[in-house]
Design a protein around this nucleic acid. Structure first.
Lengths: 204, 204
DNA sequence: GACGAAAGTGACGGCGTTGTCCCTATTTGC
DNA sequence: GCAAATAGGGACAACGCCGTCACTTTCGTC
């Protein structure tokens, strides 16, 4: 079950969870009230919860903790992970004492990370992901590209000047489990598309 | 350009924007520093910005406003939309005076809403979407279903008891611009899949 | 018993993405 | 100058999703 009030984030979490756990069923609630309804009617194995729900003051530490403990108390059989936009090491210490297994900052939650988080919990019993201030390089998204093509372009644009494109193809081939030659043709097709639509960045 | 620190939300906003504006190029930054880099190198037509960035205190109204005005001042030609997780009517009044056209709560931002927001700004010059406390009905997501099938199941589960399924098929046909008969077969295929995987909810 | 609503199955063409393979110029580096 | 790297093109089968069409059976109700 996922408890999160922001629609887009809720959707994203659903997809992350589905990507991490094949053939699963995910229930989602936007409010505590809805979450409690779901708890009444179902048995959950895993619960993601964001304590910043409407109706509660997100600045009030008490409201946040109460939101979490309300859910945790009613679902003793589940594994609980807190997904928060305003994380603090102190809050993690507090929620772990009431039985929460994971404490993840929305900042540090990247696409595909969910698998690693669940694995860490399975291995060590808990998992913490506080904000890591990696000054991200800028991202560019072109609507005309398919996801694969998009990914190839992203990689290629981060290429240091002293690395040959061929080396990138090899890296990608290994990383995506495809032929390096295929990666090369993806990049070329992507480049052709961008050229066709006049969207070619000068960094290429 | 999108300025948003949470990866998943940033990704979601990119997709929303791409869905609303066909064949567009979207640049994304996770920090103010990255955003300013992008501003130096590009001319943007539309900028989405979340004032709750790391390094600034999200509780400090001054930090939030400064984040926004820093970007707005450097991009006078662009349309600016603030996307915030902690909205207030007062903050909207303040940012509109410095030239922000839209003020949208993450709470009220649903998939597909971006088109309407941009249209409203085009028509009236500005658009406000504060939190609307519609107590959402619970959602269920099955990983084995395709998006269409998922959508059909979602609609069917919200069906009041006194409405025939056939009426739902008609509604869906109209809503999705497909045959009511096709909608019926989607639902049936979805149900067959759920039955096969033992994920059939009792509300069916 | 007849009729309509609902359930259960099978099949088809179109489309986009994916991953593969092949061929040819042009440019770069040693 | 020669070989490797880069740029550019076209074609292919496989797969999944979408939308459509056809057929059978069961159930409840009037």
């Amino acid at each position: 079950m996922i408890v999160e009030d922001q629609h887009l984030m809720r959707l994203a979490l659903v997809h992350e969870l589905q990507a991490a756990i094949p053939a699963c069923v995910v229930h989602a609630a936007a409010t505590i009230a809805t979450a409690l309804e779901l708890i009444e009617a179902n048995q959950f194995a895993l619960i993601l919860i964001d304590p910043g729900l409407p109706g509660y003051d997100p600045r009030s530490e008490m409201d946040r903790l109460q939101t979490i403990s309300t859910v945790v108390e009613r679902t003793p059989a589940a594994i609980h992970i807190v997904i928060t936009g305003a994380e603090s090491a102190q809050e993690w210490e507090e929620v772990r004492t009431i039985g929460v297994a994971g404490y993840i900052a929305k900042n540090s939650l990247k696409p595909g990370t969910m698998t690693a988080i669940l694995q860490t919990i399975a291995d060590h019993g808990c998992c913490v992901g506080l904000m890591h201030e990696t000054s991200m390089s800028p991202e560019v998204y072109h609507a005309v590209l398919s996801p694969r093509e998009q990914e190839l372009v992203q990689w290629m644009m981060q290429r240091p000047a002293n690395i040959s494109r061929k080396a990138i193809y090899d890296q990608l081939g290994e990383h995506l489990n495809i032929d390096a030659a295929s990666a090369e043709r993806y990049y070329k097709r992507a480049r052709a598309k961008l050229l066709k639509f006049g969207q070619l960045p000068e960094s290429l």
